[in-house]
């Protein structure tokens, strides 16, 4: 009896060791924002570990990692970049090119211009120009990004191609459904002039025919006189009807919008969240009506 128990215990140990070594062998995938991390999880399932390194509450696009943070990211088997200049830390970091995936590379011709500043010193003019980078808000581009991740998983991580392809099919189906919802929202908003509280909706507006201009408000913070003045200037130029916030706005932001005669809606680009991307977008798009 004792011998049988001892054998059973040893067997358990061996199995546990097997399981832990299997877990340790899982490829590590780092995504620069939550939508890409979500796509990676959907496509890689339990075969990979996925992390999004920006701390909670930080905008991954403007996060400034330390050398040690980058040293951790360097350990990843694959680093999923959004492309279009997203994540300002990427050009300053040393990463293995063989492990980088520019997920929006196939959509480069669809990049939209963002804020640009041109200046010259020493006689050479140059531009600190950037593209608008929240590409996934055009769900057709998001679908291409998912495809790029799937290709990298198959080629570089050697994941089971049939499983990845199946997961990609389902994910692209979900993204196509979001695309349909966004189209409906765009059609419903025809004739409604929109103001984005932050310049993060370029792709949404362009892809779904929304008439949108942008100001620079921090939705969750108290709105300053300067903020209000910028909105007033925009309204004086051409009145808008509705304001889109990235997060539930502060009372001060709501009041300022109402003073300017604007209704508001919330559409979180979901850059840093553990929430389900498809569900979150579906909810946001459904309420996006005049």
């Amino acid at each position: 009896m004792v011998l049988a128990l001892r054998h059973g215990f040893l067997l358990l140990l061996v199995l546990a060791a097997g399981v832990s070594s299997h877990a340790a062998a899982k490829p590590l995938v780092v995504a620069v924002n939550s939508p890409l991390a979500y796509f990676a999880k959907r496509l890689g399932g339990d075969a990979i570990q996925v992390t999004m390194p920006a701390p909670e509450g930080e905008d991954p696009a403007y996060w400034e990692p330390s050398g040690e943070d980058i040293a951790d990211i360097q350990k990843a088997d694959l680093v999923l970049l959004n492309g279009a200049g997203y994540a300002k830390w990427v050009p300053q970091a040393s990463l293995r090119r063989s492990r980088l995936v520019d997920t929006s590379a196939k959509a480069k011709d669809r990049y939209l211009p963002g804020d640009a500043e041109v200046h010259t010193h020493g006689g050479n003019a140059h531009e600190h120009g950037v593209f608008a980078s929240n590409t996934w808000l055009d769900f057709k581009i998001a679908s291409l990004q998912a495809e790029a991740i799937a290709t990298a998983f198959k080629r570089k991580l050697k994941l089971d191609a049939s499983q990845v392809d199946a997961a990609l099919g389902t994910l692209q189906g979900d993204l196509a459904a979001l695309n349909g919802l966004a189209k409906q929202a765009g059609e419903a908003l025809q004739g409604t002039a929109l103001v984005g509280s932050h310049p993060v909706y370029h792709y949404l507006a362009a892809a779904y025919g929304m008439d949108m201009r942008f100001i620079h408000w921090e939705a969750a913070e108290t709105i300053t006189e300067e903020n209000e003045a910028s909105l007033a200037a925009l309204q004086a130029e051409r009145p808008a009807d509705m304001m889109l916030f990235e997060f539930p706005p502060s009372a001060s932001a709501v009041q300022a919008a109402e003073r300017a005669g604007l209704r508001y809606r919330v559409l979180d680009p979901m850059v840093n969240t553990d929430a389900d991307f498809i569900q979150g977008m579906r909810d946001a798009l459904t309420q996006l009506k005049p």
Binding site: G67, I70, A71, Q74, Q92, S94, R96, R97, S98
Partner: peptide, 23 residues
């Protein structure tokens, strides 16, 4: 690039690989 350090099979006496510009 970091690939050079991998390619030559370097080991570190101390510290780590460069990870940011200026290092």
């Amino acid at each position: 690039s970091l690939d050079y350090l991998d390619f030559r099979g370097f080991a570190f006496q101390s510290g780590r690989a460069f990870s940011l510009i200026g290092e």
